[in-house]
Design a protein around this nucleic acid. Sequence first.
DNA 1: TATTGTTATACTCTATAACTATA
DNA 2: TATAGTTATAGAGTATAACAATA
Lengths: 153, 153
Amino acid sequence: MSTRKPAPEPTVEQVDTSYLESLVGYNARRATLVIMDAFFTNMAAYGLRPADFSVLSLIAHNSGVTSRQLCTTLNIQPPNLVGMINQLEKRELITRRPHPSDGRAMGLHLTPAGHKFMKQAELTASDLERAATARLSPAERKQLIQLLRKIYI
Amino acid sequence: MSTRKPAPEPTVEQVDTSYLESLVGYNARRATLVIMDAFFTNMAAYGLRPADFSVLSLIAHNSGVTSRQLCTTLNIQPPNLVGMINQLEKRELITRRPHPSDGRAMGLHLTPAGHKFMKQAELTASDLERAATARLSPAERKQLIQLLRKIYI
DNA sequence: TATTGTTATACTCTATAACTATA
DNA sequence: TATAGTTATAGAGTATAACAATA
């Protein structure tokens, strides 16, 4: 026969996250969400979500790039890019021009207004990044980027 | 009058991503997606998505934890946790028991089957992590985690 | 009056199937 | 036959409002 008292119902004071914190994926996801949150806050003034910004930035630095190239580079499904491109064109930040050698494709370009807009947007994005990673030294920040690249390249 | 030829329509051979790659957020997001993809593939056998796994793991290491504590720790909105908890209970991996000192709350616990299940699931998750970050040395992996923690803690 | 857990719901993000026009 | 761009649509994931029970 058992004379032991039943185990008292346990309660948790501080949640132990040590196992999850041993996983790169958990830490990368948490860090990503923090930076994305800062992005939403600081880039709302430009009316740009992270995906819009990435697309515009790639067009800025790759005049004549095609939708297909953007999709491949950014891992975006083509149907999901259509709306973005349409809106950016409606905002007169980009123009579509026929591709010189492929009649199916369109080359994407920034308008002069788009260039001016993106110059400022990239400055703001870089600033917000530095603020969100303020606890990292410049050397640590550089190394963090190198380590992350080793995962997805 | 202008006698210059119009600028030839530019095409892009290789997309230049150097600006985006200077941003921690871009790199963190890309790396996160790669690891999450490996997670989906390898953990599908357990019927666990990343959020389910995080929840189960926290319950495993914090017997008696409440839904509210999980939400705060994992940045999940309470309504979005309800369905997860219900399914995990239906699968008989967890049980809900009244909280000993707060009549509103329920303490969450793993069943014996849940413990056995999670022991294996955590091993698989750790393995998949090592595979997804195979290009990092153990020291680099450890440092990457430390750097990421500095962003979200 | 505030908090836990819950329902209902809406909104965003992402993915798939199928079409057209060009290669 | 394959590819670029597009349409329509479906499924995740995530967010807010409001409620009952308890603190």
